[in-house]
């Protein structure tokens, strides 16, 4: 039996909203250590990896490892019925063909239950090696969202180049070109506005803006986003979910 209660149910709503346009369906894997998902978009250009640690849940029980296949659009429909302040409990029997979502309002006056049919999904799991990156950049997530949105109105791809004190985002298209530079700024007064660069080697890589804009839908999950870059390797766009886990996106370079 699997049972997990998340006091901040809004987190689960935000996670699903962040990935539902990128991934059609996916297996949610549950074991003793937590709740996770790994899936590629339909063109196999990007990979999503979600992990929510067991200790991030108020209550977590998983007797056997289970894999629950869900269509993200359907999961989203159900989670939209949960209030933003509701606690969400997920429940499934070991060989069950449904998962139950229970929503509880803060004062427990309203309790609702929704059952979602599970489906069999063939998915390939990829092993992601632990890597040392040439550059790691931490920027406010809202800033990153704005940059990739603004640049997408000019071009289709962005070159991200990192030097020791700045990260530059550049694009060009039919109407012209643009570049946005963010300087390192370790703001102690407003840590949520800080930009931090940790560099071993200057690096410049080009990526499709369409995917970065899709990843930026995870902005409500975290005040910062971490970009990890190495020459000729996929970029990692990582949102740390405070006290619970992480949502990471991997995008192959152009």
């Amino acid at each position: 039996m699997f049972e997990a209660r998340l006091a901040q149910g809004a987190l689960l709503k935000k996670v699903v909203e962040a990935i539902k346009d990128l991934i059609e369906d996916a297996n949610f894997d549950c074991n003793n250590s937590g709740f996770s998902l790994q899936a590629m978009d339909s063109s196999h250009v990007s990979l999503v990896a979600l992990s929510l640690r067991a200790d991030g849940f108020e209550h977590y029980r998983c007797d056997r490892n289970i894999s629950m296949g869900m269509k993200l659009a359907n999961l989203s429909k159900i989670l939209k019925c949960a209030g933003n302040d509701d606690a969400i409990t997920m429940k499934s029997e070991d060989n069950g063909d449904t998962i139950t979502f229970m929503f509880e309002s803060p004062n427990q006056e309203r309790l609702s239950e929704f059952d979602l049919k599970l489906m069999d999904i063939d998915s390939e799991h990829l092993g992601i090696p632990e890597a040392e990156y040439d550059a790691t950049v931490k920027v406010p997530s809202s800033e990153f969202q704005r940059i990739v949105k603004d640049l997408a109105s000019i071009g289709d791809t962005v070159e991200i180049s990192v030097t020791k004190d700045a990260v530059k985002f550049s694009t060009s298209g039919d109407i012209g070109s643009a570049n946005i530079m963010c300087r390192q700024n370790k703001s102690v007064d407003k840590p949520e506005e800080s930009t931090e660069i940790d560099i071993n080697e200057p690096v410049a890589l080009t990526f499709a803006l369409r995917y970065l804009n899709s990843f930026a839908k995870a902005t409500p999950l975290s005040p910062h986003v971490v970009l990890k870059l190495s020459k000729d390797l996929p970029v990692v766009v990582e949102y740390h979910i405070p006290d619970v886990g992480r949502l990471g996106f991997y995008l192959a370079p152009k």
């Binding site: 590629m40 092993g127 996929p234 991997y250």
Partner: peptide, 14 residues
């Protein structure tokens, strides 16, 4: 899209 690599070439299949 032209020049777009697949993510599968970078990670090993489990």
């Amino acid at each position: 899209a032209a020049g777009q690599k697949s993510i599968m070439g970078f990670f090993t299949k489990k």
